[in-house]
Design a protein around this nucleic acid. Sequence first.
DNA 1: ATACCCCATGACAACGTTGTCTCGGTCGGC
DNA 2: GCCGACCGAGACAACGTTGTCATGGGGTAT
Lengths: 323, 323
Amino acid sequence: MKDVASAAGVALKTVSRVVNGEPGVHPATAERVRAAIDALGYSRNESARMLRRGRTATVGLVIEDIADPFYSGLGRAVEQVAIDHGCLLLSGSSGEDPARERELVRTFCARRVDGLIVVPAGDDHSYLRPELDAGTPAVFVDRPPGPGIDVDTVLCDNAGGAERAVGHLLSYGHRRIAFLGDSPSIFTAAERLAGYRRALGGLFDERLVVMRPPGLGGVRADLERLLGGEAPPTAVFTGNGRLTVATLRALAGRRLALVGFDDFELADLLSPGVTVVAQDPAGLGRVATERLFSRLRGDRGPAQHMQLPVRLIPRGSGELPPE
Amino acid sequence: MKDVASAAGVALKTVSRVVNGEPGVHPATAERVRAAIDALGYSRNESARMLRRGRTATVGLVIEDIADPFYSGLGRAVEQVAIDHGCLLLSGSSGEDPARERELVRTFCARRVDGLIVVPAGDDHSYLRPELDAGTPAVFVDRPPGPGIDVDTVLCDNAGGAERAVGHLLSYGHRRIAFLGDSPSIFTAAERLAGYRRALGGLFDERLVVMRPPGLGGVRADLERLLGGEAPPTAVFTGNGRLTVATLRALAGRRLALVGFDDFELADLLSPGVTVVAQDPAGLGRVATERLFSRLRGDRGPAQHMQLPVRLIPRGSGELPPE
DNA sequence: ATACCCCATGACAACGTTGTCTCGGTCGGC
DNA sequence: GCCGACCGAGACAACGTTGTCATGGGGTAT
């Protein structure tokens, strides 16, 4: 910028004014400056600008794994909204590791991101307190923060969706419906279990519930055990997309009524098509990021807790009769 | 940092030394400084550090669409390697729009990213010349840069993979094999067409080739036209993952031998399983980013052009006999 | 003609670090 | 007891912007 200034024969500040489109510069001068900028291939140093202004025009996104279609859809939406607001996205995957989540947040905050979008892995977010007090807004998506931290959250209707899924199977005559869920320490898994339980009411049988981290081996064994036991289930409700896919693999073509939480590509092309309760990952990302920007615009109201609806999509697997 | 210094009763520079683990600080002093840091909840301002050091510890990633499983897998690998090298990732989706690609690169460079990983959308990258000359290394992945720009590239064996796919169908007795590809202006599509053509040799028939941007409607119509014509194809080779899926939808269960370029989740669960030529998106990302960091470590050698192998995975659809 | 105001421009400090240089004190060797 | 080396620590400038305030010149109203 110094070079541009001397090339155009003006002061530093005038170049700054032109670059930022500030008023009060004679058109002819501005033109001369622009010519010098082009000639020298100058581009503003954003690091210096960030330092001076205290704003980085950057949003930090912490998710579980960007390679997971659910989160990459969410991430894409966050990116889009950020760009619409002139911000860039710093992103990182926590891999469901609370220490890693914390480390990412710490690093993002050291870089003075304007705001944070977090899909938390852990359940203790007291480490966020100083950042929040310092004025860095955060929005939690998909899962709420741990106790004592009251920030905006955008969740989907986990319990309601699960209830809906199980109700659907009940309406087709099933009475013994298994639940394969993620570890109950994960918020969404616990919520979905609650919905499952509520839908079943007196039919609830804890022997039909298996909750553990996903993985084909485990699911296959669990399924064999469930189906081989006395009074086996006639249907299964799977608690997330990965478990649904693992279950489909484990079933290896055997027909068993199934409704899964989370939609996934090609669910419609399998035979039978897979009935799911679909969330809207892009919607979660969009709403959360818009919430964040409304905070950045100065909204100081109490924390908002939003819940997005889910949608049951019948495709065949959830409409199979018992037996 | 100023506050920490006065709290600990030392000079600014001493705090800096402690924070950066530089030698030459008395252990007792260091301890006092650390105590002050904890008490004040201080964290280094990375913006200032970037400005001063001229390094941002940031890698810019430009891809087509982070929501696409292929690119999100690639992005995850880039992120991992970057983190292993102490860098964060700024990412953006170009949406196959050259202007957007350029804009993203420009923005990243204004932020003085240490290096760039680019999946290009356009075919003119002369705009990169100033950045490259300024010492910002770039690595192109999946597709090469336009003419005149000689940077490291990491591609997969597009032509070889296509040749392999078509050869596979030929070996199962097919003689009329259609090709559904992306717009030939896209490098990978053109390469795969070349491989298809090479494998067919004299059997090549341009009436069996359809190249256009993906989208179910188009694919369905194209397929109807191909299959309804005289001497219809007995097999089809699809030029990328999205087209493979669109084709499967359009076929709606009709049996037609098919081999697709790109693997995708659940390809094994469809019936028949979908035979594919699989790339390794994570491998592309990893190799490219390692290349970038070797440049950042000072490698000034000539541009390297790497090609990763592909793998044919027979699953059933590619082994169907003609008719 | 004088006073006033506005416009275009510039000088200067500050943002929070880190690299360089300097300085005082202690220690070891002769 | 003297000198050089070394160690811990600090002063200062610089990175490239932008916000604040100052300045001078020309136009307008009185």
